[in-house]
Design a protein around this nucleic acid. Structure first.
Lengths: 217, 217
DNA sequence: CCTACCGATCGGTAGG
DNA sequence: CCTACCGATCGGTAGG
């Protein structure tokens, strides 16, 4: 009579390492073929396991995509924070460090960056809160500068939104390859990020503030 | 003996209208299910034709996606330009009109907006040149304001990149749903766009320009 | 523009 | 973690 019980002893055990290998594979897919190509089977293929294995680590495809985004936010936050630590206490230097680190990450991991802010992962709560953390960091930065009296008063959330929008927009447009169509220097993204940050810092106006629209003469 | 020649007379003729219906269907897919779901078969299904029909109008899937992006750029340019026409000659009013129209389009067609600036369509030359046209419009706007002496001197391309980055970043972050995590007023995107534009216009600095970083005391 | 067909990929599950 | 299997979808082509 054959044994009726499942031979759990000879069943391969899910190694914690496999999850990391699968995640790295998924990130690689994002970079090479885009979000649309991220799948449990393709990740398994690149990770060198069979296509049933990923389900031991990720509930479904959406969870894998979300994991790619979350991993990206972790790395982004780490890089941004360490850049700020290096920058010290000078306000403009800190803004420059923020902008440069943000752009550098985006250009270094364009596929993953797109996943982080793409529609596929937007619904994931963990991704939303990671996004909120980035915003919170910007708000803190603004509030600190205000306490030192170094930038204008005003709703720190609004000012932080301006700063983030500028950095994020620049990153997205550069990933998109805009630079190839423009006379600006592509080879020095850091320099461009600093220029844009400085312009944002100074504003576009000339002389007195031009907030109120004047009537046509 | 059966006729050997193809009965071209009884073969349905490709109607020019079908292409438009397919394109509209594809745009709808982008809005409801995202870029990844745009396919010739699904478009055919929604358009009410058989799955072989789309090949009469679009060479392949990529061409359909590109068409969605191109159509989006046409509409965006039209809306932005008409908003500027209404705004008249006041510089700040024109900037506000630009920012508001841009954000309004993005929030009104988030799926299509994502296709316009997504990786899938980025390689398409027609999309790249449409993108360049948006940038050119911004450069023109900046250069005109400079000629009137109403904004700071400087490379108009750099200043235009700042303006576009700000508007684009705001649009992307809002599409992403950032607003739900922030205390800012979601219900009035136009107001928010104007605030951000005004802040960009004035800059963040307080008192004298703080371009040069000072050494820590 | 339609019908019919191909090869390939995918998500997911059962069972060991 | 593996093997085997399911149903579904897709891009694309042949032929009328």
């Amino acid at each position: 009579m054959l044994s009726q019980h499942v031979d759990t002893v000879n069943m391969p055990i899910s190694t914690p390492d496999t999850k990391q290998v699968l995640l790295r594979a998924a990130v690689e897919i994002a970079e090479t073929d885009g979000v649309g190509a991220i799948g449990l089977r393709e990740a398994a293929r690149r990770a060198g396991v069979t296509h049933g294995a990923p389900y031991r680590h990720f509930e479904n495809q959406q969870a894998l995509v979300a994991a790619v985004a979350e991993q990206g936010f972790r790395e982004l936050m780490a890089e941004v924070q360490s850049a700020q630590a290096v920058a010290g206490n000078d306000v403009l230097a800190r803004f420059h460090a923020l902008g440069v680190a943000y752009l550098r990450f985006a250009l270094g991991h364009p596929g993953q960056f797109r996943v982080m802010f793409g529609a596929e992962a937007a619904a994931e709560p963990a991704v939303r809160s990671a996004e909120a953390a980035v915003f919170a960091l910007a708000v803190n930065e603004i509030a600190g500068a205000q306490r030192q009296g170094l930038i204008a008063a005003g709703d720190p959330q609004e000012l932080a939104l301006l700063a983030w929008s500028t950095s994020h927009g620049l990153a997205v447009l550069m990933i998109d390859g805009l630079v190839q169509w423009v006379g600006l220097d592509t080879t020095a993204p850091e320099r461009l990020a600093k220029r844009i940050t400085a312009l944002m810092f100074n504003g576009l106006q000339r002389g007195v503030p031009a907030v109120r629209s004047r009537r046509p003469s």
